[in-house]
Amino acid sequence: MSFITARAREAFDSRMADSTVYMPGIVLSSVMFQHLNTDSDAEGFILGESKEEEKRAITDSTNDHVYFEHTIHVQKHLPCNRLNKFYNGAGEVDMVVLRKMMPDNRQDHLIGWYRQRRNTEQRMTLRERLVHENLKNAVANPDLIFLLLTPSEVTSACSTHETEFATFRSLNRRFHNVPVVVSNLGSLEDVVYRTSYAPCSSAGYHRVVQKHKSKFFSPDDTQREVMEINKMNSSMQAELQKECKKVEKSEQEVQTLRAQLTALRKLISKKKSLIPEKDVLRPSIRENLLLENSLKSLFPHSPLFQTQTLTLHGVPVAESLPPHPTTPCPHVDPEP
Rank of each mutant, 00 (worst) to 15 (best):
V180D: 02
N119C: 07
G112C: 01
F175W: 03
G112R: 00
K215D: 14
S202H: 05
Y114E: 02
A203Y: 11
L135K: 04
F168D: 05
L147G: 02
R115G: 03
N119L: 05
T163Y: 08
Y114L: 02
R106P: 10
R115K: 12
N119R: 08
V131E: 02
R117W: 00
H206P: 00
I145E: 01
L135I: 09
D190H: 06
K213T: 13
V139C: 07
C200V: 14
S183H: 01
R169N: 07
D221A: 06
V226A: 07
T125E: 03
S156T: 13
T150G: 04
H176A: 03
R129S: 05
L130A: 14
E128A: 03
T160I: 14
T167M: 11
S218C: 14
N184I: 06
F216K: 13
L144T: 02
T222Q: 10
H212T: 15
E225C: 14
E225T: 15
P179S: 00
M124L: 08
L144I: 05
R169Q: 09
S201Q: 12
R115A: 04
R123D: 07
T125K: 04
S214N: 12
I145S: 01
E162P: 07
F165V: 12
N172Y: 14
V192W: 06
V181W: 00
L126F: 08
L110D: 02
H132Q: 08
T163A: 11
L144R: 02
Q122S: 09
V154T: 09
G112P: 01
F216V: 15
N137R: 11
M124Q: 04
S196F: 15
Q223M: 14
V226S: 05
C200G: 06
Q107L: 13
S152N: 12
N134T: 11
H109F: 13
T222V: 08
R118L: 08
R173G: 07
A157I: 10
T167P: 07
Y205F: 11
V180E: 00
A140S: 13
V180P: 01
R118N: 07
T222H: 08
V191D: 10
R224H: 06
Q107Y: 10
A198R: 01
V154R: 06
L171P: 08
V154Y: 04
S159H: 11
L185N: 08
H132E: 05
S183L: 03
R118K: 09
R123V: 10
H161R: 15
I111P: 00
R106H: 14
E121G: 10
T160A: 11
V209A: 06
L110R: 02
N172C: 11
D108E: 14
V180I: 01
A140W: 10
D221V: 04
L185E: 10
Q107N: 12
R117L: 03
M124K: 03
R194A: 06
L149G: 01
C200K: 06
E133L: 12
L135P: 03
R174T: 12
Q210D: 15
G204R: 07
S159T: 14
K213N: 13
K215N: 13
R207S: 08
V209S: 05
E128T: 03
F146D: 02
L126V: 08
L110C: 04
V139N: 06
Q116P: 04
T160W: 10
